[in-house]
């Protein structure tokens, strides 16, 4: 291909991209395979490098064990060994959580309720609690372990976190009073908001640029 022809092709490709962007207000820049809008705007200039610098120091997954605490919450992948019951959870809750979250997780001096709200999303007042909102029960484990208690995060044992998860789920009527949570049972708890989410589908508003006599 001659260079003139190549330039012509390049120009028409750019033109097509511009047209594509204009045809989709707010939606320019492509989507992930799940359909999430990316808002990508094309390449930025980058400095040419004689060689790629490599300054990262090799590290092993074993060295990262204490850091590698995220749970894949839909199926519980990453949940550690251990177990905890509702009654054990109640004792830990009273000792370490009640001061902020209140008795029976009904809301306390600092934070609102962690029980109830199931069925409220179709009303004018949506009540957000772990019971009403979390699509997957392992979110409880992941969040409590990494963030709670607020004044001493990452201090609870796996058994304590399982027990607190069991207690909160029981208060929300999602597991029985004699339930024991572990890496097998926790992901099996069916959460009422499991199918409550839609992937970003914006732009969802198509306003018109009216300039005069618009009202």
């Amino acid at each position: 291909m001659s260079s003139a022809k190549f330039k012509l092709l390049a120009v028409s490709v750019v033109g097509a991209l511009v047209l594509a962007a204009c045809a989709s207000p707010g939606g320019g820049g492509g989507h992930t395979k799940e359909g999430i809008p990316l808002g990508a705007t094309g390449p930025h200039p980058v400095q040419p490098l004689p060689d790629k610098p490599r300054f990262g120091q090799p590290v092993s997954e074993a060295q990262l064990a204490a850091w590698n605490i995220d749970i894949r919450t839909p199926d519980g992948k990453g949940l550690p060994a251990g177990r905890g019951s509702v009654s054990e959870g109640q004792k830990i809750y009273v000792a370490k959580c009640l001061a902020c979250h209140g008795e029976n997780a009904k809301g306390g001096s600092v934070y609102g309720a962690m029980v109830g709200g199931i069925g409220s999303f179709k009303t004018g007042t949506r009540v957000l609690t772990p019971g009403s909102m979390y699509p997957y029960a392992p979110i409880l484990f992941d969040y409590i372990r990494r963030s709670m208690p607020m004044d001493s995060p990452q201090s609870l044992t796996a058994n304590e976190v399982y027990a607190l998860s069991a207690y909160i789920l029981n208060l929300n009527g999602l597991v029985a009073a004699d339930a024991v949570m572990d890496q097998n049972s926790l992901p099996k708890v069916q959460m009422p908001n499991r199918d409550g989410f839609i992937v970003d589908n914006r732009p969802d508003v198509r306003a018109v640029r009216c300039m005069s006599n618009c009202k």
Binding site: L38, F121, L128, I139, Y143, G196, F197
Partner: peptide
């Protein structure tokens, strides 16, 4: 699907639904 991308930072939609991964 952390708490911060399910129970928080999601947007209420009609019919009791929530819009997730609304980034832009």
């Amino acid at each position: 699907h952390f708490r911060s991308e399910t129970a928080r930072y999601t947007d209420p939609m009609p019919d009791g639904k929530w819009r997730q991964f609304s980034m832009v």
